Amino acid sequence: MSAMVVLALTGFSSGCGHGSRSDASSPRSNAQDPGTSAGGSSGDTHRSQPTHSPTPTASPSSETAKPLKDGTAVLISCASLDDPYATVEVRNPNERDAVFTMRMTFKDSNGATMITTTAQVPVPAKDTATDRLAVAGIGTGHLDQIARCEVNPRATADW
Rank of each mutant, 00 (worst) to 15 (best):
M1E: 04
A3H: 05
A3I: 14
V6P: 00
V6G: 03
L7K: 03
S13T: 11
S14N: 02
G15V: 09
C16N: 10
C16Y: 08
G17H: 05
H18A: 14
R21Y: 05
S22Y: 08
A24T: 07
S26D: 11
P27A: 10
R28C: 05
A31P: 00
Q32Y: 03
T36K: 07
S37C: 15
S41K: 08
T45S: 06
H46R: 09
H46L: 15
Q49T: 08
P50Q: 13
T51I: 15
T51R: 10
T55E: 11
P56F: 13
T57K: 12
T57M: 11
A58V: 10
A58M: 11
S59N: 03
S61D: 11
S62F: 12
E63K: 04
T64V: 11
A65T: 14
A65H: 07
P67Q: 01
P67W: 01
L68Y: 08
L68T: 10
G71I: 06
A73L: 07
V74Y: 00
V74K: 12
L75C: 05
L81P: 01
L81D: 15
D82I: 12
Y85L: 15
Y85M: 15
Y85W: 14
Y85S: 00
T87M: 09
T87E: 10
V88L: 14
V88S: 01
E89K: 13
V90Q: 03
V90R: 00
R91C: 04
R91Q: 12
N92G: 03
N94Y: 07
N94H: 03
E95L: 09
R96I: 15
V99S: 08
T101L: 01
M102R: 01
M104N: 09
M104P: 00
M104H: 03
T105Q: 08
S109L: 13
G111V: 12
M114Q: 06
I115K: 14
I115A: 07
I115G: 00
I115R: 14
T117P: 00
T118W: 02
A119D: 04
Q120A: 11
V121H: 01
P122M: 09
V123W: 07
P124T: 13
K126Q: 12
K126H: 02
T128K: 09
A129P: 01
T130Y: 03
V135A: 15
V135D: 04
T140N: 03
H142F: 14
I146R: 05
A147H: 06
R148Q: 11
C149V: 15
C149G: 08
C149P: 03
V151E: 04
V151N: 04
N152R: 01
P153K: 04
A155T: 09
D158F: 12
W159F: 11
W159H: 07
W159Y: 09
